[in-house]
Design a protein around this nucleic acid. Sequence first.
DNA 1: TGCGCTTACGTTACGGGTAACTTAAAGCTT
DNA 2: AAGCTTTAAGTTACCCGTAACGTAAGCGCA
Lengths: 318, 318
Amino acid sequence: MTASRVLRGEGGYSEKTRDKVMEKVDQLGYLPNRLATVFAGDQSSTFVGVSIPDLGNEVFAQVLEGIDRKLGSFGRQTVLGLTQHTQQEEENWIRTVLSWQPAGLILTGRYHSPRAAEMLRNAGIPIVEIWDLNSSPLDMSVGINHFDSGFDMGRYLMSCGYSNIGYVGTSHDTANAATTRLDGFCKAVEGGGGQVVKQLCLHDTATYYPGFYGTEQLLASGSGVECIFYQNDAMAFGGLQYCGTKGMQVPQDIGIAGWGDLPIASVIARRLTSMHVPHLKLGQAAAEMMIGRLSDEPVEPCRDIGFRLIPGTTVRNA
Amino acid sequence: MTASRVLRGEGGYSEKTRDKVMEKVDQLGYLPNRLATVFAGDQSSTFVGVSIPDLGNEVFAQVLEGIDRKLGSFGRQTVLGLTQHTQQEEENWIRTVLSWQPAGLILTGRYHSPRAAEMLRNAGIPIVEIWDLNSSPLDMSVGINHFDSGFDMGRYLMSCGYSNIGYVGTSHDTANAATTRLDGFCKAVEGGGGQVVKQLCLHDTATYYPGFYGTEQLLASGSGVECIFYQNDAMAFGGLQYCGTKGMQVPQDIGIAGWGDLPIASVIARRLTSMHVPHLKLGQAAAEMMIGRLSDEPVEPCRDIGFRLIPGTTVRNA
DNA sequence: TGCGCTTACGTTACGGGTAACTTAAAGCTT
DNA sequence: AAGCTTTAAGTTACCCGTAACGTAAGCGCA
């Protein structure tokens, strides 16, 4: 018991005793068993469960990095779950991770299976839903309004004088942020008198090569597309390369717009038209909200992290 | 007790009792407390601690993805630690994560602080050191021989007829795999009659933009470099873009060689000279070795995952 | 009918740390 | 020096699931 007090530094022991305890600790290489602490105290652990769809997408890797760094600096550990964009995987992971009594959960996305939602409600721990800003979150939410970001991009492309527009993305069976962006995008395009003549939703990962061959497919369909909006920058970059390979001039022959503003954009000669989202900051904000709630500080339940249109030079000027 | 038996399905109960228990479970939304299970049974948990330097580097993001997917499919959870390439961060993380009684640890790199090494030895759990193949690992090791991979690249560039070679990378104060590659590289170049006239070790992350401005710095020093070897593909890609921006022809005016074979290489028109390493497979192999050891199967302690030189078209032919 | 065996379920103790309480010793006051 | 307070250290019980053991009922068989 005295040793426990010394190790927690909560007072109630003499210096002599402290030294004796610490000596023994060093000698034995003693490491406290945190399981027992949590177990005993009926407190929550220092774990925070973090679910991320996949890490092949640099964007989510950066979000995770922001989360883990911030959590780590407050002595909390990330328990990772890659849900592969499926609610079933997410549900399974939630069940498992909850049985480990995490202090809280950070989940990507606002759509959960009914069972998952019920477990989350019953868990009685702080939950931050990230990525897709949710005005009625389970608990807290931080992200951006994807519909609006898609809408803004659509409006911008219309302002550049395009009217026949294509879209290349990937489809995950469930509703997700990319779909919401596309909805906003279509609304703006149609509202501006244009049309999204061709939407391509590949069954693949949203990375470079699918962007490349998706562009090939889209252009081969001969639908008179003047400009292509991509699910993300990696796909847009693949499209840009495809056009280069075929000798098509960007933006003279075709416009290319991405989404997400990946780091690679900092070095390519032609600035990619895109939508900047502060990924790292998003992760940090999520972790801060979690930490704040765990320290019983008042936390604003919804935080809009914002986005910024990057006009770039891969679409023509109006 | 009977409920415990039912939930574990270990037998010794009637069907009627089982139904009664399950009914209560559903009604109460009961989730077992795994902490207590581990605690009670003196068994290890289903956690596996995974330390990764950073996720800004796509390579490590992929390794982590490989690990987490494989661990998850065997009902194990990843407890993440981003060590930011420092032994001190790693040591702190190891101390914390060990107090959670993980089933095992997967660590990136073979260099650990003396205290960390001692804790690892005392922990008595399986440990897989990845990335840098280690012929005398703490326990198990999977990765590649970085010295050899650097050597092979050096030899290849010499065979292409280069003699004045530059290197652009980042420096992390401690010994690491990139340094080992550079050592092997220098040995091959010098053994082949060439010289590494300029080595640039930036204090930055090993990503696109540092590759871009590092190239600028290196070329500005006027050391007559004919070919540049980069720490990784992201940096090489930045260099490639820098050269494009300045109107330099690759490989006519300068040769560019990367390392790691990033996914982005699949779409750029000019195939980047690089070294392919199966990142996802590396992560999966690490997880498999961990699972194998945890199931008391015999596991080969050292596994060489191999690399493959990609000649590419960004260096001239001999 | 009585013996042993099986099945179904209950009871006890334990793991490691800590909250809450108790006890012992030391310090202080008048 | 008696009586009080403060400080230091020890004791007990508990967290929740499970190993190990205990027990009662049911069954088969001679």
